[in-house]
Design a protein around this nucleic acid. Structure first.
Lengths: 235, 235
DNA sequence: TTTGAGATGAGCGATAATCGCACGTATAGT
DNA sequence: ACTATACGTGCGATTATCGCTCATCTCAAA
């Protein structure tokens, strides 16, 4: 099994690091990559620890509900994860949901809210359009580099101009939205606009993805309106 | 430590437990209860560990993106949590979203999907109605005992009848839905129906919550239809 | 049914990771 | 400016963890 590409590269100074906790988290991340569940030995090889270690970790994780074993005795992520996720930026989750749904339905495309995390962009909220024949399956929590995809470009366009930035960023800064095609997913078309809260910088963006290019002018207007709506809701 | 001659094999086992991992998880859960963030010393007292211990744990958690510190240096849950939550029953998350949204809009009430976890019920998916003056703020990942609230009663009503079960359960089994009032939240009214997948038992339910009782016959029909729709989507 | 291969759960000693104290520094409040 | 509170980091003693081992269990094939 390929290892998880860790988005948070550890500095060479391994000063503050807890090995046991690290192992436990790697168990969780390994399970996250295999939604159908993993068996004990598969897990052990996946995280590179001996079975007995994983066994004890699973005991603690299970007791906290972060891991549960399905009917086939395979281990999978437990519902306590959802409990935790409900506490991640609850303001955004509640405030942005309704505008995103309207955006998704009006454009007929999958709408999403992306947040900056280090030098990567994470899709924090994804809403698929209700009545659409084929929509893009955009998984919650997807990560890409900021420099790729309309969502990241939109966030970068909200910053002060930099010398060697991509031309798309300058263009997005002028127009107020960014467009990308095939950068994240083959053949996918995306359009996004940065969210500007009343104070500070949210380092966030709203956007839509579709399987084929949409009416850029029309969609851009809707996306920017949604971004403005959400921005006004955020302090 | 003094228990030597144990006449009965102890019912509860403190078998496999990892203290460090346990501390780390308790940090996460403490942060989940304080969405506005916690400072280092607050965290230390919250989990009952010394600051230096929490410090090292936070290092590992931050490196994995599970914890991030806001602009005021307070620690809060990070976006990697959302990454993990996207892998918890992804099938349910994608399949049930659209039906729940229709249910929420048609009834004007908050719609939710609840899953059984041990002897508790967890709200796994919550959708608030788009155009509603006042809706119930139902937090994702909320837990209650199965025996309380319409969602839990609905799940119990899908099981085989038991001798001393609450009358509401028998009633729900006859009617196909359950109603409760004020059991979870003061003054809140809830109606739920069990989800019956094509095979096995999902141990799940769909429901709505409102601040005041709604038209029971009408809403019950909509909720049961939604439960059936979702049930057909699940293998 | 018997047999056997593979996976699982648990006991236990050596070792390495963790704990908790101490000290030096940064920040806020008066 | 000065005090008080909170923060970040070394370091030794101790403890929790690691990884070996063996007994038990599941399931498939003979």
């Amino acid at each position: 099994m390929a290892d998880v590409a860790d988005p948070h590269p550890e500095p060479e100074r391994a000063t503050a690091g807890s090995k046991t906790l690290d192992n436990g988290i790697r168990v969780l991340k390994a399970l996250a990559q295999h939604p159908r569940g993993l068996t004990m030995t598969e897990l052990a090889t996946a995280v590179g620890a001996h079975r007995t270690v994983v066994y004890r970790l699973l005991g603690t994780l299970t007791r906290h509900g972060l891991v549960a074993q399905g009917p086939d005795n395979r281990y999978q992520l437990g519902l306590a994860i959802i409990e935790l996720s409900g506490a991640v930026r609850p303001d955004l989750q509640t405030l942005a949901q309704a505008p995103l749904r309207e955006l998704a339905d009006e454009t007929g495309a999958t709408a999403f809210l992306s947040l900056l995390d280090g030098d990567e962009v994470v899709s924090t909220l994804v809403v698929e359009p209700l009545h659409a024949d084929a929509h893009v399956a955009y998984r919650l929590g997807t990560r890409h580099p900021v420099t790729l995809g309309s969502a990241g470009l939109a966030i970068l366009s909200a910053r002060a101009p930099r010398a060697n930035e991509r031309g798309e960023i300058s263009l997005a800064r002028e127009r107020g939205y960014s467009v990308s095609q095939g950068e994240i997913q083959r053949g996918a078309w995306g359009l996004a606009a940065p969210i500007r809260p009343r104070s500070g910088d949210a380092e966030a963006s709203v956007g839509v993805v579709a399987l084929q290019p949409l009416d850029e002018v029309h969609v851009a207007r809707l996306v920017m309106d949604t971004a403005e709506t959400i921005g006004k809701l955020i302090p």
